[in-house]
Each structure stands twice: as structure tokens, then as C-alpha cells.
Design a protein around this nucleic acid. Structure first.
Ligand code: FES
Ligand code: FES
Lengths: 161, 161
DNA sequence: CAAAAAAAAGACTTCTCAGTCCTTTAATAA
DNA sequence: TTATTAAAGGACTGAGAAGTCTTTTTTTTG
């Protein structure tokens, strides 16, 4: 549905939003371990997000990634497009050159409404909204893992990630 | 949205349905040229569909691919799952291990309803239904191409595809 | 200023999907 | 029964996504 890269991006932004502010930044290692994302790969994604001004970063001791207040207003679609390129969700599901109701493919009218409302949702929902919803459900983003099984928070210091 | 392989598969099945029956079979080269799909790659996809009993094939002179009457009753989702593996559309959009309302990811409730109805559509609509709809729109499946521009049906015999 | 800490940058590897080509098998028809 | 025809099967290549590692730059702080 979404590329793995944009999955990583979305979860990371939410995690950073949850766990940082301008005076308490989080490092790539921290995010990578909490979300079980390959550290060096994540670093590239975060850089793209930073270039796109969706998150902030600062170097040096005490540095890391964080969100400032405007960043909470970005819609989720902006994160996806920032890492996957624009219109990655707007293409014809059968790969035709144009997707339109004038030149519909056999499944256009089945898929169209679904995709349109998905796109609409992702354009409306901001980072802040998604965070708010997680809060209401009493869920933390790092409790939602992709691995086979949620590991209990053991404290063996496997720094290598 | 859908993998290129399942895009090829769906269009091919519809084309074969449109252009064949037990006494008039179509060859892989014919399908490949009409739909502008790489011939040898298509051959593999058609074999997978044939193994999955979604289309029929026969070797030798006059052989090729065709659909028998039962094959028109297969839902479109069966074609997708046959080439992309089962549940390829049911996974969490953020890549979590389980997708459920009990363990929802931040966008589960935005995506869920739409995906469910898409899945429902693809499970209900049969090959015959889709064909019927194309007929009502006076559209032939090989008029829907993926290339840059629809070429006028020139007759230069470039057999090599 | 010097040392340390962290992101930025870039080279490199690995894996999967898509695409190509060649050989073998099965069916038909002469 | 032999030649021909078409799918089946399998080996190989290429491109792009994902993942890894090392070096460089920037910032802080002692
Ligand atoms: S034309 Fe295929 S999804 Fe719109
Ligand atoms: S849990 Fe992510 S889409 Fe259902």
C-alpha cells in the first residue's frame, strides 16, 4: 500500500513528535531502536524529511531531531510525498498512462472512490491530529512494532542497531 | 497501488476473456502485443494464472490460452492473489505486524474503511462482471494502454515483441 | 582552542521485482 | 511417425528499493 520508506517516515515523525521538543531532541539511534528501523537507513529518511522542512535537525552534542510548533500542522500526505515523490498515490491502479473517469480502466470505478477518500484523509489529517488520536487511544507510537512479536522492554544494552 | 505483475495479470485475463474461447485460443505473443506487455514476462504470469486454474492453456499447434465458462465467475481478487500472493492487500498500511481495530496504527481508521470496501468490491466483481461493464462502455481492454500514447492500429508486422 | 557528540554525506552491498533468453515438453497435423 | 507449433521450464540480467558502513562537517562544552 505504502512503500516501506514512507511507513518508516510516518512512524518516525510521530515518534519524534511524541518524544521531543526544541530543548529535548532525539537522535537517530534512539528512533531506530524504539521503532525497530535500520539505523543508517532511517538516517537517510530523516534527512529527506529535514530537507523538506517536515522535521528539524541540529548537529553536535545535544543535537538530534525535533518538531517545532508549525510542523504539527503538516498533513500526513506531505510526509509520504516527501520521501516517495509526489503523486505516488494518484496513479492508475492498472498502470495506464492516465487515470480519469473519461478513460477509466476496468477497475477505476471500484478503486477510485477508495483512493480519493484515502487521499482526502491523508491531506486533511495533520501530524497533530494523528498524535491526538493516539493519545485518546492511550497508544504510544513505539508500542506499534513491525517485528514478529512485541518484545518486553528488556534492558540489555545492544547498542548496535 | 497494485504491483505491475497483477496489473498485467488483470488486463491479460480480461483480454483473453474478450478474445478467446475453447475453440479460438490466443497465444502469449498475441496478448503481449495487444497489451504492450513484455512477452516472456507475460508468459510467466500466464503460467501462474493457469496453475491457479484462473485461465486455461493448451500446448501445440492451435494451442494458447482461453477461459472456459467457470472462469468467468472468478472474482478479480483471485487474480491478484494468484500472482501477488494472498493477503497482499490486507496488510497494515504502516507495515505493522497485525492490522486490526484492536491494535490500530495511526492511520488504520482512516484507511481501514476504504480498504475494506475496495477488498469487498474486488471480491464481488467477477471477470464476467468487469467484462460486462467494459462492454457497456464500448471499451475494449486492448484500447487501454500503458504506453505514452495510443498508437493508431498500424499494420507493420513487427513480429518481435 | 581541543575534544566529543551528533547529523550530513557518500560509497558500497544486498534483495526483490521486472524483464530477457534459451531449452524442453506436449500436442497437433501432415 | 515426423515436423511443426505453442506453452512450460529454467537460467540469467538489470533496475530500483532497502540496508550498511565509513568519512566529513557542524555544534557544543570543558
Ligand atoms: S484509470 Fe485505472 S484507476 Fe483510474
Ligand atoms: S493497523 Fe495499520 S492499517 Fe490497520
Amino acid at each position: 500500500m505504502l512503500s516501506r520508506t514512507s511507513q518508516y517516515a510516518l512512524r518516525s515523525v510521530l515518534f519524534i513528535a511524541e518524544n521531543s521538543h526544541a530543548r529535548r531532541k532525539v537522535g537517530v539511534g534512539e528512533v531506530a531502536k524504539a521503532l525497530e528501523i535500520p539505523k543508517y537507513y532511517l538516517a537517510k529518511i530523516l534527512r529527506r524529511l529535514a530537507v523538506g522542512k517536515l522535521i528539524r535537525s541540529s548537529k553536535g552534542p545535544g543535537g538530534g531531531y525535533y518538531l517545532n510548533s508549525e510542523d504539527f500542522d503538516h498533513p500526513l500526505i506531505a510526509i509520504i510525498e516527501s520521501v516517495d515523490g509526489p503523486d505516488s498515490l494518484k496513479k492508475c491502479a492498472l498502470g495506464l498512462n492516465t487515470c480519469s473517469s473519461e478513460h477509466p480502466c476496468p477497475i477505476h470505478f471500484y478503486i477510485g472512490p477508495f483512493r480519493d477518500s484515502l487521499l482526502q484523509s491523508l491531506s486533511e489529517i495533520t501530524v497533530g491530529d494523528a498524535l491526538e488520536q493516539l493519545k485518546q487511544e492511550h497508544v504510544f507510537i513505539d508500542n506499534l512494532l513491525t517485528g514478529d512479536e512485541k518484545k518486553k522492554s528488556n534492558s540489555d544494552p545492544d547498542e548496535r542497531n
